[in-house]
Design a protein around this nucleic acid. Structure first.
Lengths: 354, 354
DNA sequence: CTGAAAGCGCTTACAG
DNA sequence: CTGAAAGCGCTTACAG
């Protein structure tokens, strides 16, 4: 290993015949540098394979040029599972960061842990994006503290008044209303809702409220026995379905607060020999990649994850640059597939086809 | 925004009644610091909510404490798609990094671009993990250059002699052999292989070689007309299947070099009214999350992505610490599901069940 | 348009 | 076991 000394801006300065300060300016595109000098510096840098030291630059300028993306997950015993819905935002977040010249730091955090010091305070990142269905109330107090210290944070979630930080989210209320509206159109009258609809999970709660609203509009009195708590996992969906079945209340449809829950529910129903959609129609929420592949393909609500990722990055950068930003709600789109259709579709669907 | 001055190690020093140097030592757990002093420093740091400035620390120590994870993708028009197989490694890579106290920087790179300067040279990261099915030969020359400059790199891929960097990979040869062996056991005799089997894609090539070996063991002469190039995407799988059908060579099974290709193939077969598995058995490779959800559930080869992620991080850290490391091949596991079974299974499978 | 100089907040020999 | 001092490689007023 030939450990040649690190090449610094001084080496470039010497080669280009300018001062080190000018090298720094030229390389950052400072308009005060003359075009001719800039070119000379740049070619010198290219010759020596020089790259600006990020640590020195960040230390001096107090700009990390980095964004931290934190995934919150309730501790799973198995390391490797990430909620596929959030994963689907990763691509557009990464690309958006790259487009703006920012690096992306990612990290998983257990909800319980003391994550709030780690990123902004240590100057690793200029701002933080928060992703995760988690207990909302647990978050809130920490977010408040962070905001007091001036940390820039943007999160994905329920868009509500009095949020402790800028939030980008889907129109969960109308999403819930559309799903239940669709199930009612199919002729279902006893629609179960699987998902924790408490204040701890405001997104689920809003979907539930949309659901209730759709029922009331049609003059149907909601039955509490048809709501079962569940968190966003297949397992939880399976269990919730078992609970529902054990209650003995008749139902002809399940509206699951997330696709993962829905997939678990379909599994449980099949175990009991209940046919989907012929005996029970099922719909989910999120339109994760699997949704169109399960059997039967799952009716669900699509959230524009690509746009969401871009907006998260965009909003955070505006925050960082002290520009005005507001929380925003993205429109949703109902994706009707076979799982919710009481009558069979004429043509066989192909996997991956919508 | 009360922009109080940043708290530095000098403030902690003052509060704890020690020198700034001692603060630095205490906080990094330097054993030369007395237990009593360490405690005093730590509580002072806690009181003032102090966190070590990562940039200053990295600049001085020349250790970034960060690993860069680069995904290589052939440029897709759509931002948001990441190969699900690599995504499944993300969890364990992230966790492994966290466990070792390293941060994880992630970035997507087009194969074409000039990525090699960006991370190690600018001291953003102490080492790089490379993930991606891409044209192997394009990579190689860049990797060579990087190695010359002393960059620490570990990649996922085909484990072969003369690799330009430490590589962790699956036993692709035996994987390919198992799949084809299984298809032969099912009675198939005309097994098509979908995947680019050239030197440009060594992993596919090894799977193909395993496939050929299995055929020869049973005295079957491979037919070139049964191999069609494809890269790892649904679309490419669909097209390759069309090409295969257009050739008019009879086949009773398809071994797709990746699950994505297999899923595309199943779609194309269905379009042509060809039943899977009754007319054509299909098998894939990777065991991506969708594989068990498609209809019929896909027979495939599971690679231990969790272990793979851990080993990638582990190997890279050993490289960083100048410890001996070697390329390693991970065992594979054949997952038999309905897509390859010529006779129907007795019980209905449930989604997500193996 | 460019240069000389200070300083970002740490770590790390060196000395005691 | 602890402190004083140098210095990592930049950016940024300040001056011309």
């Amino acid at each position: 290993m030939h450990s040649k000394k690190r090449i610094t801006s001084f080496d470039i300065a010497e080669l280009a015949g300018v001062s080190q300060a000018t090298v720094s300016r030229a390389l950052r595109g400072d308009p005060s540098v003359s075009e001719e000098t800039r070119q000379r510096v740049e070619s010198a840098a290219a010759t020596l394979n020089y790259t600006v030291d990020k640590n020195a630059s960040s230390l001096r300028s107090k700009l990390a040029g980095t964004i931290a993306l934190l995934f919150f997950e309730d501790p799973t015993p198995d390391d490797s599972h990430i909620n596929p819905f959030f994963l689907s935002m990763l691509g557009s977040i990464t690309h958006a960061c790259a487009r703006h010249g920012y690096d992306l730091l990612i990290s998983f955090q257990e909800l319980a842990r003391d994550w709030h010091a780690d990123f902004a305070e240590s100057k690793k990142a200029d701002g933080i994006i928060l992703l995760g269905y988690g207990d909302y109330l647990t978050h809130t107090s920490r977010l408040e503290k962070l905001r007091e210290r001036g940390t820039r944070i943007v999160s994905w979630g329920a868009v509500m008044p009095d949020q402790p930080c800028i939030t980008i989210g889907c129109d969960n209320f109308n999403g819930g209303r559309s799903v239940t509206g669709h199930l009612l159109d199919q002729g279902c009258r006893h629609i179960a809702f699987l998902g924790d609809a408490s204040r701890h999970f405001p997104e689920f709660q809003e979907r539930y409220h949309g659901h209730l609203q759709a029922l009331r509009t049609r003059g149907i009195v909601p039955d509490d026995a048809l709501q079962v708590d569940a968190e966003s996992s297949q397992d939880s969906g399976r269990q919730a379905t078992e609970t529902l079945l054990a209650r003995g209340v008749p139902f002809d449809a399940i509206f699951a607060a997330s696709d993962l829950i829905a997939i678990g529910a379909i599994g449980a129903l099949m175990t009991h020999g209940i046919s989907v959609p012929f005996e029970v129609a099922v719909a989910g929420y999120d339109d994760i990649p699997m949704a169109s592949f399960v059997n039967p393909p799952l009716t669900t609500v699509q959230q524009d994850t690509r746009r969401a990722g871009e907006m998260l990055v965009d909003s955070l950068l505006r925050l960082i640059h002290n520009e005005p930003v507001e929380s925003r709600m993205l429109p949703m789109k109902l994706m009707v597939r076979r799982s919710s259709l009481w009558q069979d579709v004429a043509h066989a669907e192909q996997p991956g086809e919508d």
